[in-house]
Design a protein around this nucleic acid. Sequence first.
DNA 1: CACTCCCGCCAATTA
DNA 2: TAATTGGCGGGAGTG
Length: 892
Amino acid sequence: ENIFDRSRMAPKTPIKNEPIDLSKQKGCTPERNPITPVKIIDRPQPDPWTPTANLKMLVSAASPDMRDREKKKELFRPIENSEQTDTPDSLQYDIVDDNTVDEFEKQRPSRKQKSLGLLCQKFLARYPNYPLSTEKTTISLDEVASILGVERRRIYDIVNVLESLHLVSRVAKNQYCWHGRHNLSQTLKMLQEAGELQYGELMISQHKEQDLEYKFGEQKKETISDSQDRPLLEFSEPDCTSASANSRKDKSLRIMSQKFVMLFLVSKTKIVTLDIAAKILIEETQDTVDHSKFKTKVRRLYDIANVLTSLGLIKKVHVTEERGRKPAFKWIGPVEFPGKTDELRGHSPTSDPLPGTQRGACAQYQTSATGKQRFTRHASFNRAQPCEAARRKVSSEPNSPHQERQDENCSKMINLAAVCRQKIEEDTGNKACDTETILNSSKNSNITLPFSLLPVPGDSDFCVNPLPQAVFPVVQADVPSFSLPIGISSQASHPSTPAASKTENGKPTLVPNQPFLCFPSSSLFMLCGGLQENNLSETLPASGDVGHRSAEAQAAIPPTGCQKRSSHKCSSPSAPVDDEEPAAKKQTLEQSDLPLSLVIPKKPSESPKAELSPGSGCSSAVHLETNRLDLASPAAAEAANKESTKPLDCQEQEKQSQNKDTDEPPPGNEHISKENANQPFQPQYLYVQPTAGLSSFNFLFSANQAPGAISLAANQLPSLSVPCVMVPSAALASFPLVCSPSFTSPLSPVPDGSFSAAASTNFSMSSLASTTPVFISTTAVVAPKVSPAPSVEPQQPAHPALHLSPVLTRSCSAVKLDSPVCMGHPVTLLKLQQPSSAPLTPKSIRPAHHEAFFKTPGSLGDPVAWKKNEGNQTRNASSVQRRLEISSTSPD
DNA sequence: CACTCCCGCCAATTA
DNA sequence: TAATTGGCGGGAGTG
């Protein structure tokens, strides 16, 4: 019935499609507007374009429904067209009028016009990416279908994929609730974690060779297949909807979608070919792989890919391999997820799980990266296992076995992967895919602007990478955080611009607003959402020096170098291992990623690259951080790693900074604003990389956020905790570090060794103030977590970590807090100053809580302001404003 | 011909 | 039982 209505309606509307209709319609010309009344015509004419069509016609003759459908189809085309281009429509109309043939042509467009991707875009266009938390948008399938002029079936395809990413949740029959992308980062994070567990190795191998994949696949099967992983996947979802619906079906499209996304997230190259994905998905699901099944799977993947493409998460590329070219998709969405809020559905729980899982995964990876290695993973893994392992399936293999195998594989894979990656990237890049991709990505993310702005320059080097992700929620850079920093800066050092701070070597600092700062030479990196200006720079230098990763090195051997580094790091510290390991692993993993980025770099453009490397790096750092919070140290490590990824960018930035010492604050601001718009928070990190010789080296990591910390006075400090600090040895030794890890507890495990020590340390504000050369404190972790977390979102409670072990879970919760999303994480970087607060996502942040959490002066002082920001901004609006506001407040 | 992927039948679930 | 969901695969459109 619905159809009927629609169809009728539809015809009126725009209609463009069918010749017949068109002819009639043309008069109307409504273009696609559905609304238009146009007209009439109902005839069902069949257009026998194809043989099938004929059949259909016949059928339709018999049944009106068919007609309707056809009409609808037509209708929707218009709709589609509308989005795409009006012109065409007009043209079409004209043509139509003239001839049938023309009409025909019009129809033609149909196929593309009708594509699921377009349909999805239209669909998405109807809803805000970041709806206010308060508002809940319900989606009526019938309504949407009629509006878009498509069959309901199509809407299901879209909705199912969106649901898998938690962009929507099913409320009731025919009713879906639109959540927007607030939770996207979280969801992605989860998926990434889950993906790492499940596919981590595979992915890597994939890139290299399918063969490997197969192998892995087999392994996977063993591991996973029996029980199926679904649970993991499902976890996330259930949260949201809860209810009713999850059940049973969750099948394919949803699950496939999640798995597909996982593959991207796990993939170093971020490129997944359809055939590989299909194989993997099939394997998991079933042992038997039929050819037909494969085909079907691929079809489904196209469906999913179309939707994901519309979401700006992936883009189509062609991967050329030795064998030949294959259709593939490249992930252009956020790579890392700091934490985001979970608003609606209650993701919170999910977040928790993730962290844990990731760790496990990371650990594994590390091992491999390292060269094989070792063990660490186990420890971490174990932790994770409860959740994951169990889920995954413990079934066939006992944990350890799996792990072992995985490890081995992983290590191998990693190595290979690195190689592959390079190849791939090169290939792709050469082919242009990369280019495209990059460009696209930049577009998508919007990142570009920011970067470009920031850095500037010409030189270049400096670029901020970043943040492609900024756009995404994931990004964390929130305004708040920025603002905080600003405020801080003002307080602490310069009011406004801090821009360059600089430092000893001249590494200056930073770009005021940039989210990340990189110091090339020095082993240390600072990432700051807000940036810390001076402080950072100082720190850096200290550590710095190190030969670090010179650009050259990177360029030349990026992957390897990176990995090695990571490995070194890991290994050296290894003693401490267990706890730390995870971090280390992560690092390695990330590092592995780095290589890619490095490779890519060939393209000079900063921004573009950013997409890969930067994005990954940055984002990763962020999210890591978040995660880390739990673990604390580990997290830091990851962060560090991630940074490593960015080295290029960083370096560039650094250079610029150096060159310019002063840098350009303005740019920073700009980029910030953008970022802010997208997301609220950015974590700040301090990262120390081990460079070349620093095997012993560790990194420092600070999560940021600490809004309050700074602002508050010393008092707060105590409360602060540092999520992660890695102190390496020697390198750091040279300069003073202060870390406050306050992890309070639980989380961190800090392990041993230097790391732990560092981590554990607490410091008081005063001390900080004093100026230690390096100071890192993260508040966020503990304190925030405690109070804030809950406040943040009710949802959290929902499902904690699916996979994670209890411990993890906790951590997760903590993390969540940390995560930008949830709340700000206050972090303080170096010397006190900055708080970068983390404001969090607007949504996520809810006034009260956040305020509490953040302690940023501003926040404290002006909760209201925050609220305001949050509320309004949710989406974008004024990210900048927010920042400003915040900043202003913070200073206060 | 290969790649995409639209279309819609029809089974599984729900209401 | 009717309606809603959604798996699935034929085969059309595109290059």
